[in-house]
Write a protein that binds this DNA or RNA. Structure first.
Ligand SMILES: [Mg+2]
Length: 383
DNA sequence: CGTCATAAACAGG
DNA sequence: CCTGTTTATGACG
């Protein structure tokens, strides 16, 4: 199992004179898989790109291992901690995946193989609630609930109450075939979180949870990324974040007209934090490529290619890493993370969400509108 | 093939 | 227990 060392890395890398480092998904991969490519990060003037499987980076970071960049036209089946799949001599591109595991194995969420006992019926149910004579989805019902309120906002508890009182199927006399109380409440919460149109704004009343409002911003309906980021069809799989999802404080507020406005740079949900994390760690990132659910693949990050000419003969892998992941010259005013800074960090933490409000309190230009309902976001967020 | 209901893991108040 | 985020499964049009 030959490995690439500092000494032989470059010669292994450059199989041909003008070859470039390039990994899937390309060509044949795209015939089989679908990807959702999300623009992210700073623009690059580099023409060639290559793609890294995200969890490989994360795995290297978590283990504090030295990162080894695999090459095209591999001469072995293994490169460091990576496995090279679909090796075809006539191909110039290879798909790189972590060895001997799938991302599903890391997931804390229930999988089919876990419960080998009886299978539950989950799909195929019609929308359970009828309102105004029309069968509505959960999302539609929630809209009706919130719209019925005086100030177009409702706490979860109020939404529950509205459902109980206005949707017969959710009431005490629902009858057979109707979801149990726990079930439809679960679905209500699921829909509130899932759909971007439902946003939380702070509620300063002691003991009450946040208000849910309907964001009617037109861009919400036009932005593909906006629609897809919480899609059940295009999930954000975050292997290095396979940990329980956590609530964040409300990111939004109501302006004087009770329109949804957002706090800038407020703590974000895991999905949003993930993009920021990637941007921060990999400033030259061009794209994040999210896979569809099936087949289950890991997200990849697409980066501009490096010019191997600029790499000295006696380079080390970590130098190569730094040269690759550092910011391009036009952004050199910013400091970029070094190899050790990335790999020595205890956990690649998109969780500014975990660290409290330091990012907010240290934000010099953070200002609240005069009309902002919230005066003390640092201490009151009513999750 | 996209939509959506449903179950559930997990966290933190 | 309540609120919230997210993943997994699968039926249906
Ligand atoms: Mg939401």
């Amino acid at each position: 199992m030959p490995e690439f060392t500092d000494n032989n890395f470059k010669e292994n890398c450059i199989a041909e004179e003008d070859s470039f480092i390039d990994f899937g998904p390309f060509e044949e991969d795209l015939e089989t898989f679908e990807y959702n490519e999300v623009e992210c990060g700073q623009p690059t003037n580099v023409t060639e790109e290559f793609v890294l499987v995200l969890s490989d980076l994360a795995a290297a970071a978590n283990n504090n291992e030295e990162f080894t960049i695999p090459i095209e036209q591999p001469r072995s089946q293994s490169v460091g901690s990576f496995e090279i799949l679909n090796t075809r001599p006539e191909r110039t591109h290879q798909v790189i995946r972590p060895r001997s595991s799938t991302i599903n194995e890391f997931s804390p969420y229930p999988s089919a193989s876990d419960n080998n006992s009886r299978k539950q019926r989950r799909g195929g149910n019609q929308s359970p609630g009828v309102f105004n004579g029309r069968r509505m989805t959960y999302a539609e019902l929630i809209v009706e609930a919130i719209k019925s309120s005086k100030e177009n906002r409702m706490t979860l508890r109020q939404i529950y109450q509205w459902m109980s009182r206005n949707i017969r199927e959710f009431g005490p006399h629902g009858g057979p075939g109707c979801p149990s109380t726990n079930s439809w409440k679960n679905s209500i919460r699921h829909n509130l979180s899932l759909h971007e149109m439902f946003k939380r704004v702070p509620n300063h009343t002691r003991g009450e949870s946040a208000f849910w409002v309907i964001d009617t911003t037109p861009s919400n309906n036009n932005d593909i990324y906006y629609d897809q980021k919480n899609s059940q069809t295009w999930p954000h799989v975050r292997p290095e974040l396979f940990r329980p999802a956590r609530t964040c404080p409300p990111n939004f507020r109501l302006d004087a007209n009770y329109q949804v406005a957002n706090f800038d740079n407020i703590r974000q949900s895991d999905s949003d934090c993930f993009d920021d994390f990637i941007r921060e760690k990999f400033p030259r990132l061009a794209l994040i490529i999210y896979p569809k659910k099936e087949p289950k693949l890991e997200p990849r990050i697409r980066l501009p290619s490096i010019s191997l000419d600029n790499i000295p003969d006696n380079h080390s892998n970590s130098e190569l890493f730094d040269s690759y992941f550092s910011k391009p010259p036009e952004f050199s005013s910013c400091t970029s993370p070094s190899h050790s800074e990335i790999f020595d960090s205890p956990h690649p933490s998109p969780s500014t969400a975990d660290e409290g409000f330091d990012s907010i309190s240290t934000m010099e230009n953070f200002e609240l509108d005069d009309i902002c309902i919230d005066s003390d976001v640092d201490t009151i967020f009513n999750m």
